Amino acid sequence: MIRSSADRPVLPSDVPTAVLRRAHLLAAGATGRQITDAVRDGRLLRLRRDHYLPRDTDPQVCAAVQWGGRLDCVSLLRLLGVFVRERAGLHIQLAPDASRTPRPEASTEIVRHWRPTSSAADDVLVPVREALCAAVRCQRPRDAVATLDSAWHLGAVDEDGLADVFAHVPGRYRSLRPLLDQRAEAGTETLVRLMLRSLGCHVDLQVRIDGVGRVDLLVDGWLVIECDSRSHHGSWGNHKRDRRRDAAAIGLGFTTLRLLAEDILFRPEWVIEVLRRAVARGPGTTPRTVRVHNSGEL
C-alpha cells in the first residue's frame, strides 16, 4: 500500500494533511457566506474554532482535531496499513504545553501523547517516524518488532528512518533493532518468526521452493509455515491453490503447518506449544534434493 519516502507516505484519499483555516478558504475565493453554508449543509466540517476539514475526512482524523491534537502512534500507523495490534482508544499527539484542549463528547477512549513534534502547526498527522517511536513504547516488544517490520516492508520507513527511530526511543528498546526483517509481509509472520527464534530454530522468510512456490517461513530446512488470514485466503480459489501447494510440498518431503492469524494474535501460548511440538518431532522424511531460493537469513 505505502510506497513513498520515509516521512511522506501515500495517504488514503480521505486523509488530508492539514486543517483548513478561514483565511485559507477566503484566500481561495470563498466568501464568508459560502463558508457558513458549506458548514451548515455538511460539505465542510467545523471541528473546533477555525479548524475545518472536508466532509469525507476519515473520522479518526476528525476526532484527533476535535480533541486539539494530531493523529499519532498506532492509530496513524493502522490508518496507513501498517500492522499494529488491535488496541482500544484513539492515539493523538498534543504539545507538552497545551493547557486548554477541547473536551468534545466521545465514547472512544483517548490516549494522549504529550510531546513535541516536528509537524507544522496545521498538520493533522505526525510524521511516520514519530508515530513509530510512540508505537514502540505503546506496545509489547514482539508487537513493536512486527510493527517496525511492517512499516519497513511497506516503505513507510527506510533504514535511515529506523536508525532515527531507535535514536529517539529509550535505550532498553534498542535491542530490538537486530530482530527486524524487511522481508516479513505480515505482522503475523514476524510474531511466528520470533516464537520460532525463542525455540532456537533457524528461520528463512519468503522462500521460493521449486514446484511449490513462495512460502512464508521455512524452518530448519523442512517445516513450511504459512500464516493465513481471511483477507488473503478467504475465497475457494485461494483454498484450492493452497491445498495443491501443500500437497506438492509433502511430495517433496516438506511438512506444511498452516496457522490462523487469529490464533497467532489471540492464542499465542497455544501456537508456541504447537510449534514446540512440531519442531521437537522433526521431519517425517528428509526433503528431497530440490532447489530452494533463499532471500536471506534471519
Score class of each variant (00 low, 15 high):
288 R>N: 07
16 P>T: 01
182 Q>V: 10
31 T>A: 08
269 E>L: 14
47 L>Y: 02
117 T>L: 14
125 L>P: 06
77 L>K: 13
115 R>E: 15
98 A>M: 03
290 V>F: 09
253 G>H: 05
242 D>S: 11
255 T>P: 01
175 S>K: 02
188 T>V: 08
262 E>M: 06
168 H>E: 01
105 E>Q: 13
82 V>M: 04
290 V>A: 07
135 A>Q: 01
248 A>D: 13
195 M>E: 05
112 R>I: 08
92 I>H: 14
237 G>C: 01
85 R>G: 08
276 R>F: 06
291 R>A: 14
89 G>N: 08
10 V>N: 15
70 R>E: 14
219 V>R: 01
73 C>P: 14
80 L>Q: 09
18 A>M: 10
282 G>Y: 13
50 D>H: 14
206 Q>E: 07
38 A>E: 05
174 R>W: 00
258 R>W: 04
32 G>T: 12
272 I>D: 09
213 G>I: 04
208 R>N: 11
127 P>A: 03
242 D>T: 10
108 T>A: 12
17 T>H: 12
231 S>C: 12
261 A>S: 09
30 A>H: 09
151 A>Y: 06
165 V>G: 01
15 V>K: 06
109 E>A: 14
208 R>I: 00
126 V>H: 12
192 V>G: 02
184 A>Q: 03
231 S>D: 15
229 S>F: 08
115 R>K: 15
104 P>K: 04
172 R>G: 00
158 D>S: 05
67 W>A: 04
50 D>G: 13
171 G>D: 00
271 V>R: 08
25 L>F: 04
242 D>V: 05
104 P>R: 08
240 K>I: 09
281 R>V: 03
17 T>L: 12
178 P>V: 04
149 D>G: 05
161 G>H: 05
228 D>I: 08
37 D>R: 14
111 V>F: 10
124 V>M: 08
86 E>S: 15
82 V>N: 09
67 W>D: 02
149 D>F: 03
134 A>I: 03
264 I>D: 03
241 R>N: 11
199 L>N: 13
190 T>P: 00
211 G>T: 09
69 G>W: 06
